[in-house]
Design a protein around this nucleic acid. Sequence first.
DNA 1: TCTGGGGTCCTAGGACCC
DNA 2: TCTGGGGTCCTAGGACCC
Length: 423
Amino acid sequence: MFALVDCNNFYVSCERAFNPALEGRPVIVLSNNDGCAVARSNEAKALGIGMGAPLFQIRDIVKRHDVAVLSSNYALYGDMSARVMSILSEAAPAAEVYSIDEAFLDLRGMDRARREAFGQELRARVRRWTGIPVSIGVAPTKTLAKMANHYAKKTPALEGVLDLEDLRWRERALHKFPVGEVWGVGRRLNKRLEAMGIRTAAQLRDAHPKMIRQNFNVTLERTVRELGGQSVIALEEAAAARQSIAVTRTFGEKVTEYAAVSEAVATFAARAAEKLRRQNLLAGAVLAFIQTNRHTPQDAQYARSITVTLPEARDDSYTVLTAAREGLDAIWRDGFRYQKAGVMLLGLVGARQFQRSLFASPPVAGSAQLMGVIDHLNQRMGRGAVRFGAEGVAAQSGQWRMRQERRSPAYTTRWSELPCVAA
DNA sequence: TCTGGGGTCCTAGGACCC
DNA sequence: TCTGGGGTCCTAGGACCC
C-alpha cells in the first residue's frame, strides 16, 4: 500500500504559518514576476480564481473581495518543505519526496486499522510541528493513492484521510472521477480520451491496455494498469541522477538592447553554475535561448535556442558564462522586443566520474578555489554579493530584472527577518 | 517484380508533472 | 500594459554503424 501525503494549498499555507491574519481570508501567491496565481487558498478558489490565472485578468475579483496577494517566496517554501519532508520520511520505512509539497510513503505490511490511526496521527503531527495542513490518500498503487488524495482533500467528512483498499468504495470513487484528473492525463490526452467516449477513471481502467498502448503510448498503458490495482510504478527512494539544470526568467519589462539581454544571460549562467557546484555535478554543454512575447502574436516574433558543447565537462562560472554568451551572440537578432531568456546546463555528470578530454586545455589554476570562495561569500552575504562584471550592476540596469512587489520576509532562513514573538 | 537485420546516437516535438 | 519556472519521459525520423 502507498500513501500520498500532499500539503494543502502549500505556498498559501506557508505564508499563513507566519501570518495568521491571512487565516480565513482569500489568499493567492503569484508566480515569478508577479505574473500569475500559482497557489490559491480555498476561499480564493471559491471566488473562481483559476490555477495560473494572470493577475491583470483577476484585478476586479481581487479588489472586490479584498484578496491578499503575495509574491512568491521560494526561500520560505523550500525551507518549510524540507521540514515537512523530514517528518514524513521518519514516519515510514520508505518515502519518496515527489515534489516540493508531496511525498509517497510505503505502508506495506500495515493493516487497515493501523493505517487509519497512522494517517490521522501523521496529519496532526505535521500540523503541530510545522503549521502546514496535509491530506493523505492511501491505495495499492501510486495512481490510485493520488486519486484517494483528491477526495481526502475535497471531502470535509473524511477529515483529510481516505483509504481506498476497500473495493466497493474504490469502485465508487473511480466512477465519479473525471478522466482528466487522473495522474498522467493532461489536457491533450483528456481531449482525445473523451473523443473516444472515455470520460471517467473507471472507463479508462476498463479500456484494453494493448489498445491504449497502440493508440497512445506506454505511459498511459501503465496508468490503465495502475487504475486496475496493479502496481507498476515503483516507489523511488533514491533521487535519480539529474539530467539538466535550468535558470530562465521572464523580464520585468520587454527588452530590446543587446547589452541588457547579455547581462541577463550572464546572470542566469552564473546562477546555473552555482547550482551545478552545489549538486556536485559538471556540465558537458550549455544551452542559451531568447524569445519574444508569445501572447502578443501581432508583434514580430522570434525564438531561438542554441547548444554550445564544452570541450570537457566543467563546473566553473567562467566557462559556463563564456559559453552562454557565445551562444547568445550566435542567435541574437536586433529589432525585437525580448520577453524572456534562459540558460540550461546539459550532459551532467558527477564531479568524480567524468571523462577527461585529450584536447581540452586544463581548467585555469585556482579556479576551483575561487568558485568555492565566491559561493561561500554569496551564501553568507546574499545572492549576488560577489559577481562577474558581465552580470551588470543591479542598481543601474533594473529593466530585465523581475518584479516582486509583495514578498513576505524570509522568516526561517535569514537571521534579520526572523519573526519576533512578544508574550 | 524482386531489395536484410539489428543496432546506436542525436534532435525536435509532444506530452506530462508540480 | 500586465501572462512562471523547472523538470521528466516517449516517439519519430535521420544519419550512421556492422
